[in-house]
Amino acid sequence: MPGLEHTITIAAPPERVWDVLVDVERWPERIPTVDSVERLDDGPLAVGSSARLRQPKLPEAVWTVTELTDGTSYTWESKSPGVLGVASHVVEPHPDGTRLTLALSVSGPLSGLGWLFTKGLTRRYVETEAASIKSVAETAD
């Protein structure tokens, strides 16, 4: 199953990193790889919550939370014809603050071909997203 994982250390407490991570409505102002986010439900992010994301050079996607451990991790999925994308976000205490791990895997009959064309872009996006979350979490907001 094609995919990638990126881990970064953030000089901020896990609670702060978690707050930035789950505030998906503010991603477009905080993360340059996200053009827009439209929550499709109300309230805090929870299992079953969905959001429509628009990102440069990628098709619009609806992501639905499938697992969530408050303050620690969430996983969401996006389905398109022939491809299932699964993205996980994990926040862990670290001696220097917090360790954030972002991971993405794709599966399905068209995933190999799609991954061939988007792997480099996706890697840059995930690295930029982690760096952006780090920057926001480490500064007053």
Rank of each mutant, 00 (worst) to 15 (best):
72 T>D: 06
67 E>R: 14
60 E>H: 06
35 D>Y: 09
33 T>C: 12
30 R>K: 09
71 G>Y: 10
54 R>G: 07
70 D>Q: 11
29 E>F: 02
72 T>E: 12
67 E>V: 09
14 P>D: 02
60 E>Y: 05
41 D>R: 08
26 R>P: 03
53 L>K: 05
18 W>M: 02
51 A>R: 05
30 R>L: 15
43 G>M: 11
72 T>W: 10
23 D>E: 13
47 V>Y: 06
44 P>Y: 03
52 R>T: 09
72 T>P: 04
57 K>Y: 10
66 T>L: 08
36 S>I: 10
67 E>N: 07
19 D>W: 00
28 P>D: 13
21 L>E: 00
62 V>P: 04
20 V>K: 00
52 R>F: 05
59 P>V: 08
40 L>T: 07
42 D>L: 04
17 V>F: 02
61 A>G: 14
34 V>A: 05
27 W>E: 03
58 L>C: 14
58 L>H: 12
28 P>A: 09
59 P>S: 10
29 E>Y: 03
37 V>P: 01
29 E>A: 15
52 R>D: 09
53 L>I: 08
48 G>H: 07
63 W>Q: 10
15 E>L: 05
69 T>A: 15
53 L>P: 03
29 E>R: 13
43 G>S: 11
66 T>H: 04
68 L>A: 11
71 G>R: 13
65 V>L: 08
16 R>P: 02
52 R>V: 09
21 L>Y: 00
61 A>W: 02
25 E>T: 13
68 L>S: 04
66 T>Y: 03
18 W>S: 04
56 P>G: 11
16 R>A: 08
45 L>D: 03
18 W>F: 01
